[in-house]
Amino acid sequence: MSRAVVVERPGRHRLVRRGTPVPGPGEVLVRVAAAGICASDRELYEGRRDAAYVRYPVTPGHEWAGTVVAVGDGVDTGLVGRRTVAEGFRSCGVCERCRCGETSLCSGGYAETGFTEPGAFADHLTVPARLLHPLADDADLRAAALLEPAAVVAAAARAARPRPGERIAVVGAGTLGMLAVQLLAASTPAVLAVVEPRAARGERARAFGATAALSPEEAKAARGGFDLVVETAGAPASAASSCLLARRGGRVVLTGMFAPGAVGIDPVHLSLSQLELRSVFGASSAAWSDAVRAFGAGLLDPGALVTHEFPLEDFGAAVALAGDGDPRTGKVLLRP
């Protein structure tokens, strides 16, 4: 038997018990070790996610790590027993964007584990074997559950092209922001500042390599002072304020998920400052590979961000805690 959390519709969930899923051709069956809850999972549960990006009823869970326990037809049996993570986007692999390596821009239609396909808030899940990124035999699966947001940060780093000695600002010190600090610190910047209204989180970022922690008010005095700005907060004004932090000719990468009504970026400032502006939604296969390599090399320490762990039975309490705004709440995990 296998258990799974099913969100039947916004605000309503139940824990179901059913037969263990069977992997189909080209698929693997994974026993989930840990799965992270993020803001988008809370949006799904509360019914605030764009209808084009969710399909009810659904088992959420797109941030996870586990162990392969069975394979379907056509899949290498050597994968059985391997610790692994997997890409969330079910890219088609054959469209023009996929063939160019831009799998997060797949034009074959949106499908993603945990939103339109059964996710990891369960004892087991099945995923296409081609999406796997196997880990080392001794990999910490609790920490590896955060490799999905780490892959988003790796995608931002690919777009940002950090160079040694640059002045870098990271806006926001949530999960994405802390992972961004860790990854960007490896590029040996001259300055790596975090902009965060919650002082405790800003100070904690120093332990991961930040050289300064600025409040939004303090950041105003540093406008125009950064070669690269990586926005991770998704707050209503953070896209616009991130552009003001960058120097003329600087680079800005947006990774936060913005809600309707967010403050727009000033097109006059954008034009006159000749800023290079990129956005990131999800991660390509290449960015996933970058994140897994960085994790294996010890450049990322995602496990340090975990503050709470719950069993599947306590999904309701876990999703209420995640994103509650308490600065003491870091990453929340479900542990089947």
Score class of each variant (00 low, 15 high):
4 A>G: 14
7 V>F: 12
18 R>T: 13
19 G>V: 12
21 P>G: 14
25 P>E: 14
26 G>L: 07
29 L>S: 10
30 V>R: 04
32 V>W: 13
37 I>A: 07
47 G>S: 10
51 A>Y: 06
53 Y>W: 13
58 V>R: 02
61 G>P: 02
61 G>F: 11
64 W>L: 14
83 R>I: 10
85 V>H: 03
88 G>Q: 05
96 E>N: 07
100 C>G: 13
103 T>Y: 07
105 L>F: 14
108 G>A: 10
114 G>S: 12
115 F>C: 08
116 T>G: 06
116 T>I: 12
120 A>C: 03
136 A>G: 13
140 D>N: 10
158 R>W: 02
161 R>N: 06
162 P>A: 03
168 I>L: 06
174 G>F: 01
177 G>F: 08
181 V>M: 04
182 Q>R: 07
182 Q>Y: 04
183 L>T: 03
192 L>D: 00
194 V>S: 09
197 P>A: 11
205 A>E: 05
211 T>Q: 03
228 L>E: 02
235 A>C: 04
238 S>C: 04
241 S>V: 10
243 C>M: 06
243 C>N: 05
245 L>G: 07
248 R>K: 10
258 F>G: 00
265 I>N: 02
266 D>S: 11
266 D>A: 09
277 L>K: 08
278 R>S: 15
284 S>N: 02
286 A>L: 12
308 H>V: 11
310 F>C: 02
315 F>H: 11
321 L>N: 05
324 D>I: 04
324 D>H: 06
324 D>L: 04
333 L>E: 09
